[in-house]
């Protein structure tokens, strides 16, 4: 059918008299959470607890940083190799040399004072830098949005963090798009409690998306967390070894776990809009479950930030 004839049909349909759409009654939503109010309105918060055993936080000592010779400006892979051959494997061994004295001082001070940005600029990796943080500083984050560009609203932000002896999941849900703004306001307050944000593709997607939505609602907040994006680490280890580097593939190969009845990502926007229209809790439950699974899996694979993965894990991975 051509465009003009379709438009003609639409015009005729609009002119038909007496067709009033009766809005469907929405029953109060029960997803096991609570409604939260703030000065911008309401939103819905779901909480759940998981065992702390899911968090695979590698214990890292700051020692590790002093053993990274390349943090000194002027040392590249070649010099590093030469130095190691001469038995130098700690920057402090170079502190007496005029050529390196000054650099060693700078790096030592960075380590002492926790100048993470500078260390990262000098090439320190996520694993080494984790030594500045403890488990309580971490927040895992995953968003569900109505599109791929921050112009389109988001409606669910899941976070996972250590809360006493447990892992706590909080899911901030906008039951309609009016609830996005109050949600985003409280999200900022909550996220300020953490120093490290762990995501899957969050550097390119989740983090700028949230910031974009903050611009849209005139909050102009910025995320200041140290960002660990596990997608980069997954690619580093598994590219070419696994069929792809999606999180569910990692679950399958590393965690020996296969999701059943998981909603595919591309269906999420339209499913959410259907939920807004109908209020059918079954629709949103799928998305909430999907989001929770993503977060727990993130915590379980955090150990892949390590430079190398030990043999035992790999056996599981390639079984």
């Amino acid at each position: 059918m051509t465009l003009l004839s379709r438009l003609k049909d639409i015009k005729a349909k609009n002119e038909e008299p007496g067709k009033v759409q009766i809005p469907q009654k929405k029953s109060p939503l029960d997803l096991g959470g609570v409604e939260i109010n703030n000065s911008f309105g309401n939103y819905y918060l779901i909480e759940k607890e998981y065992s702390l055993a899911n968090l695979t936080f590698p214990a890292v000592s700051k020692e590790l940083l002093t053993r990274n010779l390349r943090l000194l400006q002027g040392i590249g892979p070649v010099t590093e190799r030469e130095m190691r051959e001469q038995g130098i494997d700690n920057i402090n061994q170079l502190s007496g040399e005029v050529r390196w004295q000054y650099e060693v001082e700078i790096v030592s001070e960075c380590i002492l004072k926790g100048k993470i940005k500078e260390l990262r600029r000098r090439g320190a990796c996520d694993y080494e830098l984790l030594s500045f943080f403890k488990k309580d500083d971490l927040v895992f984050l995953d968003i569900e949005s109505t599109g791929l560009w921050a112009n389109q609203p988001l409606f669910l932000v899941g976070i996972l963090y250590k809360d006493g002896g447990k892992l706590k999941l909080q899911q901030y849900l906008a039951r309609n798009l009016q609830e996005e703004k109050p949600l985003l306001a409280d999200l900022y307050k909550k996220l300020r409690n953490f120093k490290v944000m762990v995501t899957y593709n969050g550097k390119k997607f989740d983090a700028p998306y949230i910031e974009g939505r903050w611009v849209e609602h005139r909050f102009f907040y910025r995320l200041k967390h140290y960002q660990i994006d596990l997608l980069y680490h997954a690619r580093r280890h598994f590219k070419g070894k696994f069929p792809n580097c999606r999180l569910i593939t990692l679950e399958e190969y590393l965690l020996n776990f296969k999701r059943e009845g998981d909603i595919p990502g591309y269906l999420i926007p339209q499913t959410y809009y259907k939920f807004v229209k109908s209020g059918d809790p079954a629709l949103i439950k799928d998305i909430i479950r999907h989001n929770a699974l993503d977060l727990v899996s993130l915590a379980r694979v955090l150990y892949i930030v390590q430079p190398c993965i030990n043999a035992k894990d790999f056996i599981a991975a390639t079984k």
Partner: peptide, 18 residues
């Protein structure tokens, strides 16, 4: 056509392409 969706009076884009 399923390219946009109406929700509470406003129209939202839901396609996955730019």
């Amino acid at each position: 056509d399923g390219e946009i969706v109406q929700s509470e009076g406003s129209y939202y884009y839901i396609g996955g392409t730019y």
